[in-house]
C-alpha cells in the first residue's frame, strides 16, 4: 500500500508519522474517521482529497492535537500530537491574521509565543521569511490593506517562521482565484526546497494535489476511510510548464477517476 517516493527511512526504524487504527466518533455517535492506518515518510507531501464531509479537516485537527482521538494512536516524530505542537504549524483556510498587527508582527507571532528567540532574532527570521514570500514592500502594512493572496502568503510565512517539521494545511488556497492559486503552488514548492517539512495538504483541486504532492490519499465519506493511495512522481523538476505536460495530465486523469469512483459509491 505504501509507495514511498522520497528516500525511504532506514529499514526497521519507525516511519516519521504513523497513524494506527485512528477512529473519531463525535459525541452524537456519528463516526467521521473509521480505522485509518497511514505511515508517512519524512519530507513527504501528502494531499488529502475526497468528498465534502469525509473528515479531511477532522484528520488534520487530530494530527494537530486540537481535537482528541476516540481510539487508535498517532505518532509524530515519536511524539503524541499534544506534545508535537512545537514541530507543527497549521495553516487555516482563511489566513487567520491578527488584524491589529502588521505583516511583520503577524509573522513574528509564533516565535514570540514560543519564547525561544530574542527580539532581534525574531525580527531577523521574520524579515527573511517575508522576503522569501515576496512581501518585503508591504511588511509594515496591516492585513486590511492586503489582498487575499497576500494574506495567505503572510500566513505561510508565519507558519514557516518557527521552522516546523510538519506543516498542516486545510484548503489554504480554496478561496483564491486560479492564477493566484497557481502562483502560490509554485511558491510552496520553492519553499519546500529550502526547508524539508513534511506536509498534509487538504484540497478539492485535483490539479493542485497532483502538482504539489508526492502522495495523494483519497478518502471516502460515511464513515471516512482511505480508499486510494496514489504516489505521484515526475522525472523533471516541477515548474509551471509541468501543468501542460502529458505526464501531468495523465496523473490528473487518474486521480479524478479515483475521486469520481468514490463519489458515485457513497
Amino acid at each position: 500500500m505504501n509507495a514511498p517516493s522520497s528516500p525511504a527511512t532506514l529499514p526497521g526504524s519507525p516511519p516519521f508519522i504513523q497513524l494506527d487504527a485512528v477512529t473519531k466518533r463525535w459525541p452524537n455517535g456519528s463516526v467521521v474517521l473509521d480505522d485509518v492506518d497511514l505511515s508517512v515518510n519524512k519530507g513527504d507531501f501528502i494531499s488529502l482529497i475526497g468528498p465534502s464531509g469525509c473528515g479531511k479537516s477532522t484528520l488534520l485537527r487530530l494530527l494537530s492535537g486540537l481535537s482528541p482521538l476516540t481510539s487508535g494512536t498517532i505518532t509524530l516524530d515519536g511524539m503524541q500530537p499534544d506534545n508535537a505542537r512545537e514541530i507543527m504549524s497549521f495553516i487555516f483556510q482563511d489566513a487567520t491574521l491578527l488584524p491589529w498587527r502588521t505583516v511583520l508582527g503577524n509573522v513574528e507571532l509564533g516565535l514570540e509565543l514560543e519564547h525561544r528567540t530574542t527580539a532581534t532574532q525574531r525580527r531577523e527570521r521574520a524579515n527573511r521569511l517575508i522576503d522569501l514570500v515576496g512581501l518585503a514592500p508591504v511588511a509594515s502594512h496591516y492585513p486590511r490593506q492586503l489582498s487575499g493572496g497576500m494574506k495567505m502568503r503572510v500566513s505561510i510565512a508565519r507558519a514557516l517562521a518557527i521552522r516546523p517539521k510538519i506543516l498542516l494545511m486545510d484548503e489554504p488556497f480554496g478561496a483564491l482565484d486560479e492564477m493566484t492559486r497557481d502562483f502560490l503552488n509554485e511558491e510552496v514548492l520553492r519553499l519546500r526546497d529550502n526547508d524539508q517539512f513534511t506536509t498534509f495538504f487538504v484540497t478539492h483541486s485535483v490539479a493542485e494535489a497532483v502538482f504539489l504532492s508526492t502522495r495523494i490519499i483519497v478518502l471516502q465519506a460515511n464513515p471516512g476511510r482511505i480508499v486510494r493511495d496514489i504516489p505521484v512522481s515526475f522525472p523533471g523538476p516541477r515548474t509551471a510548464a509541468l501543468r501542460s505536460a502529458p505526464d501531468f495530465l495523465a496523473q490528473v486523469g487518474e486521480v479524478s477517476a479515483a475521486l469520481r469512483a468514490v463519489k458515485t459509491r457513497t
Partner: peptide
C-alpha cells in the same frame, strides 16, 4: 474571538495569559 484564532494560539502552546493579553484583549478593543 474566532475559533481559528484561538486554535492558532493553542498550536503555539500559548499560555492563558498570553492568549488573554495578545489575542482576546486586542480583539475586544
Amino acid at each position: 474571538v474566532p475559533r481559528n484564532l484561538m486554535d492558532l494560539f493553542k498550536m503555539s502552546n500559548a499560555s492563558r495569559v498570553q492568549t488573554l493579553l495578545r489575542l482576546q484583549l486586542p480583539h475586544a478593543v
